[in-house]
């Protein structure tokens, strides 16, 4: 009895529940499975067709990604002779782990955070910066011309979006006088997106760039470089590489919701009283809707050219990010927050 109850307590404790159950691992997998299906369905709907359907007819083929994932899992995993085995095999796993780690810093409710650090926002963003390195490792390890091209693109893109991402996030930190997500949410009497729309726009575009979704899926640019760094991957490793972008994007949408869309506010009190983490449902719903909007963009846009994306990053977003910092300072001086 004591064992069971302590187990339950362990599972429900923020330190475990956050990273493993919600919004971490389990939810990530669920999001991953559903969002790719949502993406394909939305694209199909705009494109005059139906999309995945027969696999689970009553739900419109909602478990399509389960089939694809299982197929990847059971498919032969080819390790070409020409690859550098260690980075080739290790990089996808490392990338996926680092894509999962930031969820340990996402608070779900005022007093429900897995790790209580005053710097959860920089920690969250910092962990995400490891992923481009693993992508470089994949590209290098693959020893394929297309992969290396993709790796170089990733390197270029990283320096274009990362600074912008951080600066726009820090402008919000300046505005709220804190580096902690939970305190940011509390500081938002008005959603941050209304206070500092420039910062929100910059962060939004930079996070699409970071996750490599359209119109910035330049790293995977299939029309030029097949699948970029992931060209040589087959089987489950490719499944992993395919998922990284989505996991990252899901994390970013959570961060976006916390910083700009006032997180779990307005808090649903009855849910909160049952179990504190349930308050995060609203957070999740907001983040998921944002995610849906981002994957919807696939149906509207093609892909920008690499130099155009870099130009957007350096010439448009970077000055805008600086402007957003000043805007935050100005707002602080006026005393809005």
């Amino acid at each position: 009895m004591g064992l069971v109850s302590s187990l339950v307590r362990l599972v429900l404790s923020p330190q475990f529940f956050g990273p493993i159950v919600f919004p971490g691992l389990v939810t990530v997998l669920a999001v991953l499975l559903s969002i790719i299906w949502v993406e394909r369905k939305i694209a199909a709907r705009v494109q005059m067709r139906v999309g995945p359907l027969y696999i689970l007819r009553p739900l419109g083929g909602a478990i399509q990604m389960l089939a694809d994932g299982l197929r990847f899992f059971f498919q032969e995993f080819i390790v070409p002779e020409t690859v550098d085995r260690v980075p080739f095999l290790l990089a996808p796993v490392v990338a996926m782990s680092f894509a999962m780690l930031p969820f340990a810093f996402v608070p779900l409710a005022p007093n429900f955070k897995p790790y209580t650090v005053p710097y959860s926002m920089p920690a969250f963003l910092g962990l995400n910066t490891v992923i481009p390195l693993t992508v470089l490792a994949m590209a290098w390890g693959s020893n394929n011309k297309f992969s290396i091209q993709g790796g170089i693109r990733e390197a270029y893109m990283t320096i274009a979006y990362e600074a912008v991402l951080f600066i726009s996030a820090y402008s919000m930190a300046l505005l709220y006088h804190t580096l902690d997500f939970a305190e940011m949410v509390e500081a938002q009497k008005v959603p941050g997106i209304l206070l500092n729309p420039i910062s929100a726009l910059v962060f939004f575009i930079a996070m699409i760039m970071s996750a490599g979704k359209l119109p910035f899926d330049i790293v995977e640019g299939e029309q030029e470089i097949v699948a970029g760094p992931f060209t040589e991957y087959s089987g489950i490793a490719f499944g992993l590489t395919m998922g990284i972008g989505y996991v990252q994007l899901y994390g970013f949408t959570l961060a976006f919701t916390l910083m700009y869309l006032s997180g779990w506010e307005p808090l649903v009190a009855p849910l909160y009283s049952i179990y504190p983490a349930l308050g995060g449902i609203l957070l999740f719903v907001k983040a998921y809707l944002l995610l849906v909007f981002i994957v919807f963009l696939r149906a509207v846009y093609g892909r920008y050219r690499l130099d155009q994306a870099l130009r957007i990053g350096w010439r448009t977003l970077f000055p805008l990010a600086i402007v957003s910092v000043f805007l935050s300072i100005a707002l602080g001086v006026i005393g809005v927050v």
Partner: peptide, 20 residues
Amino acid sequence: PRFDMERYGFLPFNSPRQTN
């Protein structure tokens, strides 16, 4: 759109390594 075999999960893909 008119025959859309993606209903069966049929998705033309890039590289031979990921297809069957």
